[in-house]
């Protein structure tokens, strides 16, 4: 059972307190967008084995959504950060690269 720290209330929360929300940093495509863009937004996911940016909600806690950078294979958590972040923050990327020098944000 995963342990993630909610960046809002600071609680180190059990997975049972949280709801998963799938991949983070999706760019929304609305009316007028091309079929390809909309398909990508609605359906296409990285499904990464390795570093993954994902959405979680502290449902049975403060109720806030937040984002996490986590390795889907080893389950290592590199950090959690505010949901109001359009792209992975620099310090999270640095943390990941400190542990995985070969990794880069693609």
């Amino acid at each position: 059972m995963l342990l993630l720290t909610c960046p809002y209330c600071g609680v180190s929360a059990d997975e049972t307190e949280l709801s998963p929300g799938g991949e983070a940093h999706l760019k929304r495509f609305g009316p007028g967008s091309s079929d390809e863009d909309f398909e990508g937004y609605l359906f296409m996911r990285h499904n990464q084995k390795g570093v993954h940016f994902e959405r979680w909600r502290h449902t049975y806690g403060c109720g806030k959504w937040f984002l996490a950078a986590r390795c889907t294979a080893s389950l290592e958590v590199f950090g959690t950060y505010s949901a109001q972040t359009p792209e992975p923050p620099k310090e999270i990327i640095e943390k990941i690269q400190a542990k995985r020098p070969d990794w880069s944000l693609t």
Partner: peptide, 13 residues
């Protein structure tokens, strides 16, 4: 309610 919060917190903050 959760759906509203999702969009408010994660898209139209």
């Amino acid at each position: 309610h959760a759906h509203m919060e999702d969009w408010l917190q994660c898209e139209w903050w």
